[in-house]
Design a binder for these strands. Structure first.
Lengths: 351, 351
DNA sequence: ATGGCAGGCACAAACGATTGTGCAAGCCTG
DNA sequence: CAGGCTTGCACAATCGTTTGTGCCTGCCAT
């Protein structure tokens, strides 16, 4: 396999024709340039026999197209992003493109470097899951050389197309679910505060509360990143507030993990002592003790839609119309939410 | 950022020198070719000011080196492989290389295509997690144009370097753990039978049994892939055998997931009715009901070591000495294993 | 004055592809 | 038979680097 694919030159020499002729015969331009059917046939046969395929580097150099897309992700080892990566690579294969993967390790600095490196390599398009808050470095992408699609997080002020979950709706559904079970003091374990995902989820949470006429209490919101440790610390803090929240809403899968740990350490039982809902579904949710009610994001859809949007732009040579795509979420009800007893509601409403 | 980086030619024109001079000044070859310090300084200043960096395509074309490595994985959305991908991309960044990612979707056909595509793109090295059994297509890689490292699975008959977990040792430890708790009928939920991982884990299992003088019973081994569904079906089957196994050993994380489902459906309790040990640790293992004892693979180490080995070969231009690297596993004891009561042991030893 | 040597750079050929244009041979037409 | 049209392909530039070699100038020694 692939012991140095032959070149146009080699094929041309074998057949006693010019590289021009070979190139045109193989690229389907034969007719336009009046290469005889006989010659074209001979070229194609030999090319097939030698398993010729044009050198992508040379091609890219000449054409300024590399049949390559960039994918920048904060952390491939996060199942949510991994799933997106999976879908993107599969879509890329379908479009005969390769994927250059970069892991920004949740650092804006590395995200900038990665964008730079991929653009240098002349990717034909870029799918980016931005790490967070800063967007100055994204500004130049708007009128940049290649189409860009933002996934998971978006920047309202930036005219870049994006594909995100319905974070507002998902959070509202989760919160409503808790409200319907009688919960009124619902603690929120948030992620990185300035990100669009976090903001949207908080918005959904507040909107649900407002819908029921429940006042939001800023002291019920804790946490500062989407990492497990932040979830752990935030949960510990909220569990110590009095009166204690009767339910926690974790705004991310790792945060939920931290919350589970904190709740276990506090000697509390789910859902007897406290209810829990988490953003992001995962395969183990069913087998936790108890199974955890989650807001499932359709990561597959995010990846697929982003890739679809990107490739349609790549094909159409069109740039970044700032279209926004929102993918619905789904509330997966399991056993981690329990109705609040009347007594405890009244106890809560007094202070 | 990156509004079409200038070219050597542009810099040369600006300074009234030749591209040769610019190239040599920037590549540190200035002294060897007697470019005066003054000229070199001017070139370097301008290059810095214009944020010049050589076009990787042109460079690759000329040098036959692309500063790119290929990474082929059966399924990036599997946390184990995702972790490997994460470590590889980070190592690549450290070595100023980019990563071309391909997802073979557990299909040999796609694995072949991916290898081909990446070699065409002239990657400088390849990290491959082979999907399975077939190895004919890997034969040509042994004396191929670039260094290749196999990760997770290896092929004893192939002179390709590999980095794998100590599957034999891990399985032996898990099995010994069960034996020490008095288990004698230990069912195995295996993965894809002909793979090295599966073989090695079975070997470890049998070796532990043999060490205790326990006869192995082929009817206690079930399953045919590493996927959840296989684990589910295999567990269902084993749970119906009489006398029922007192413990199950799942040879993979997804398999364990299927086993959990099957056990729950059968109305059995872990560890009261049946004990469980699983290959592959994961963050949720602690919070399952009950926490599951696992054989933790150090996926980070696999990725890091593989990348390290690859880059040292890339640097040294050395090819594929068939060195094998084995990374230790760690038994993480949680609550899913319970000592067998004397009565049930005797009951088991009778038939 | 001439030969030799070193310094300082430029020329030009790669690497493989794509593409606008040019050119020869054959045929037809008037 | 001259001019023009068609057929069938080749020439050569180009993308942006890298690199072996060649060339000129000036200086020193003989």
């Amino acid at each position: 396999m692939r012991n140095a694919s032959p070149t146009l030159k080699a094929i041309a020499a074998h057949l006693g024709v010019s590289v021009t002729t070979v190139s045109r015969s193989l690229s389907g331009q034969g007719a336009r340039y009046r290469i005889s059917e006989k010659t074209q046939g001979a070229v194609r046969r030999l090319a097939r026999r030698l398993d010729f395929s044009p050198n992508p580097l040379a091609r890219g150099l000449r054409l300024k197209k590399t049949a390559t897309v960039g994918l920048i992700i904060p952390d491939v080892s996060n199942p949510f992003f991994a799933r997106i990566a999976h879908c993107v690579t599969i879509a890329a294969r379908d479009h005969h493109h390769s994927v250059l993967l970069a892991d920004s390790q949740e650092q804006t600095r590395l995200e900038i470097d990665s964008i730079d490196a991929l653009l240098r390599r002349q990717v034909d398009g870029l799918i980016l899951c931005p790490v967070g808050i800063a967007d100055a470095h994204l500004r130049s992408l708007v009128r940049g050389p290649v189409p860009v699609i933002l996934v998971d997080r978006h920047f309202p002020r930036l005219a870049l197309p994006s594909v995100t979950s319905d974070n507002v709706g998902g959070a509202r559904a989760a919160t409503s679910h808790l409200l319907a079970a009688g919960h009124r003091r619902i603690g929120v374990l948030q992620g990185l505060p300035e990100t669009s995902t976090n903001r949207d989820r908080l918005t959904g949470y507040r909107s649900a509360l407002a819908g029921r006429g429940v006042r939001t209490d800023p002291r019920l919101v804790a946490g500062d990143t989407f990492l497990e440790d932040s979830g752990y610390r935030a949960a510990r803090r909220l569990l110590r507030t009095r009166p204690r929240p009767t339910a926690l809403f974790a705004l991310g899968n790792l945060i939920a993990l931290g919350a589970l740990r904190a709740i276990a350490e506090a000697g509390l039982r789910i859902p007897g002592d406290i209810s829990l809902v988490a953003f992001d579904d995962h395969p183990y949710a069913d087998h936790l003790a108890p199974p955890v009610t989650t807001v499932a994001q359709d990561a597959d859809a995010l990846g697929r839609i982003a890739a679809g949007a990107l490739f349609s732009r790549v094909r159409a040579q069109s740039l970044n119309s700032s279209q926004r795509h929102v993918v619905p979420t789904r509330l997966v009800s399991r056993g981690s939410v329990q109705p609040v007893s009347r007594a405890s509601i009244q106890q809560q409403e007094k202070p």
